[in-house]
Computed example of a mutant assay.
Amino acid sequence: MPQAIRLHITTLPGRGQEQIDAYGRLAPLVRAERGCLQYDLHRFVGGPDRFVLTELRSSSEALAANAAGPTFRAGPARVIEVEAEPVAWADEGGRRPPARRLISPG
């Protein structure tokens, strides 16, 4: 059964373009992974530093393989370093893990 993840991302003020640039470098690598059906970043209208990242994998096994793979380990270093708030996500069933701060703002 396909597995979806939705990440809500808020960057530090004025750093939204860095998120877009990092996503642009990472997206082709993630999309080439076995079981990746979708990997899309959307910017909020009127919110230049707010995004939603939608990822869809073909199965829970494909999602687990991604989490153990090199793009997952490399991705946060390139993408998440500009986060100002914890990343909030939910799987297809609406389950959410406890939020954690990825970097300190300021």
Rank of each mutant, 00 (worst) to 15 (best):
Q3I: 15
R6W: 04
L7G: 06
L7A: 14
H8Y: 13
I9P: 00
I9T: 08
T10L: 10
T10V: 13
P13F: 10
P13R: 11
G14C: 06
R15W: 03
R15T: 13
G16K: 05
G16D: 07
G16C: 05
E18Y: 03
I20H: 02
I20L: 09
D21H: 04
D21G: 02
D21V: 04
A22M: 07
A22I: 04
Y23H: 14
G24R: 05
L26Q: 04
A27I: 00
P28K: 00
L29E: 10
L29N: 02
L29S: 05
V30C: 05
V30I: 14
V30G: 09
V30P: 09
R31P: 14
E33K: 11
R34Q: 15
R34F: 03
R34C: 06
C36G: 07
L37P: 15
Q38E: 15
L41P: 02
L41K: 04
H42Q: 08
R43L: 01
V45F: 11
G46D: 15
P48L: 02
D49G: 07
R50T: 14
F51H: 13
F51I: 06
F51Y: 14
T54C: 04
T54A: 05
L56H: 02
L56F: 05
L56V: 15
R57L: 14
R57F: 15
R57T: 13
R57E: 12
R57D: 11
S58E: 15
S59P: 07
E61G: 09
L63H: 14
A65H: 14
A67F: 03
A67W: 00
A67M: 13
A67S: 14
G69V: 08
P70N: 04
P70R: 11
T71P: 02
T71V: 08
G75Q: 01
G75Y: 00
A77G: 15
A77Y: 02
R78E: 03
R78Q: 05
I80H: 08
E81K: 03
V82I: 13
V82Q: 06
E83V: 13
A84G: 15
P86C: 05
P86F: 03
V87A: 08
W89H: 03
W89Q: 03
W89A: 09
A90C: 02
D91W: 01
D91L: 02
G93Q: 09
R96S: 07
R96Q: 06
R96L: 05
P97M: 01
P97C: 01
P97G: 09
P98K: 00
P98S: 04
A99I: 06
A99R: 00
R101N: 07
L102N: 09
I103M: 10
I103G: 12
I103R: 05
S104Y: 01
S104H: 03
S104A: 12
G106K: 10
